[in-house]
Design a binder for these strands. Sequence first.
DNA 1: CAGTGGTCTAGACCACGGT
DNA 2: CCGTGGTCTAGACCACTGG
Lengths: 233, 233
Amino acid sequence: MTTGQKVSFQDIRNEVLARIQQRVWVPGSLLPTEHELAEEFGCARATVNRAMRELADRGIIDRKRKSGTRVNISPVKQATFEISIVRQTIEDMNAVYRYSLVHRSLNQAPAWLRAQLDLEDAAQVLHLNCMHYSDNRPFQFEERWINTAAVPSVVDADLTDTGPNEWLLTEIPFSNAEIAFTAVSADSKLSDFLATPTGTPLFQMERTTWFQDTPVTFVRMTFHQGYQMSTRY
Amino acid sequence: MTTGQKVSFQDIRNEVLARIQQRVWVPGSLLPTEHELAEEFGCARATVNRAMRELADRGIIDRKRKSGTRVNISPVKQATFEISIVRQTIEDMNAVYRYSLVHRSLNQAPAWLRAQLDLEDAAQVLHLNCMHYSDNRPFQFEERWINTAAVPSVVDADLTDTGPNEWLLTEIPFSNAEIAFTAVSADSKLSDFLATPTGTPLFQMERTTWFQDTPVTFVRMTFHQGYQMSTRY
DNA sequence: CAGTGGTCTAGACCACGGT
DNA sequence: CCGTGGTCTAGACCACTGG
C-alpha cells in the first residue's frame, strides 16, 4: 500500500522486485532506465536510484553505466549473520551467562600462528583458554592468541571476570576480520570442556582480526554439540 | 585521498569511521548532528546522510530521531556470505564441475517435512538425492524435497543433467529462504557418497525456501570433509 | 561520442520521540 | 513542542563504457 502521498523508494523497490518475481522482467533482461522508471512512478530520479541501488546491493540486479540495469542471471544470494559477543548471544536466549578463564600464558608465538597472523619470528602472544556457559551448561570453548605488540595493555588486563572478546572490543573497536566456519571432531580436550563424547561433531568458528593492517588476534571458538547457526534472507 | 573537487559521501564515511577507530568518538558517545557534519565537511546534508546511513547499516553507529547518532556500544558485526549455486562455487575455484542424480521419487511428505515446510497432510513431494563433484572428487551431497504443489512442473522436469537448484532458480527466481549451518557426523550413506570414514565431522547447510509465503523446498547439503566456509568483514 | 548510472546540491516537508 | 534523522525533489555535473 502506498501512503497515498509521495512515492517512496520502498514502493518502487517492492514493485520492481515483484515484477522480477512475477517474471515480468526475467533474469538477463534489460530493465527500463532510471529516467523511464521515474516517469512511470511519477517521482524524482534520485528516488528510483535509491530503490535500484538497494536491489543491486542485494544482488538482485546488476547495474552498469551505459549498458543499463539487468536482472541478475546468476543469483548470488547473500546470507548475513549477526556475529555478536557470546554473552549477548546467550542473554538474547534469556539464559544466564557465565564465563570462566581456564588458562592464561605468555609465549613465543608458534610457527603456525606466526604464519596465520603474519608475525615476526620473536613475536610474543598471550594465549588464553576460556569457557562460556549458558544456564551453566557448556556453550562455547574459546582458544585465543593475542598479539601483545598490537595491544600491549592486554598483558596487564584482568581477564578473570570479563572475556577477552569483550575486553578487546573496548580497546579496539570496529576492526577488520576474517571468519571461517568448519566442522570438527571433539578431541579429548573439547570433549572434556564441552561435556560431550570424544568424536562428537562440533561446529567451529575461527576468526582473525586486524586493526588497520596490524594483526591483533586469532580465535577458535568451538560450540556445544548440536549448535546451529541460522539466518534468513 | 579526496578527489579534490566535491566532498564525496565515501570521504565522510571513511573519516567518521577513522575517528571512531581512533577513539575520537568512543562507543556510546553522541556524534555531531547531520547539520553540523555537513557544515564541517562543507557539503549538503544529504551527502552526510548517505555516509551515516551506510555506517548505520554496517552496525557501526546507531541512529534515532531526536536523540541523535551514537557509536554503537554492542558491536553486532554482520558477516555476509555469498551463497551461490554449487556449480558456480566449484567453477570459481577453477575446478571441473560434475553433477549426478542419485535418487528420485515422488512421495507423500513425511511428518517431519510437513512440519518443517508447513504443508498439508496429503502433500506430495519430490524427493531427490544428488551428488556434486569438483574435479571428480566428492564435493557436496544434496538431499532435497520439493513441494510439487508449489512447482507442479518439477514433476516432469529432467533433472539428470541439471541440478534441482539450478532448475528451480529458472522457475522461481529470488525467493526467500532460511539457512542453517551445523556440524554432523558422517553416517554410512554420507560416508559412502562423500568417500570419507563413518564418523567424520562434516559441515552441513540446510535451507528452506519460500516463494511469496508458499513453501517450495527444503534442502540439506553436506560438504566433503574439511570444507570451510569463510568471509571477511 | 552519447547514453546510462553515480553522485552532489539546496531546499523542503515529514515522522518519531524526548522534554 | 521542537530537534533530529528520514526522505523526496528538481536539477546539475560527472564517470564509465559501448558503439
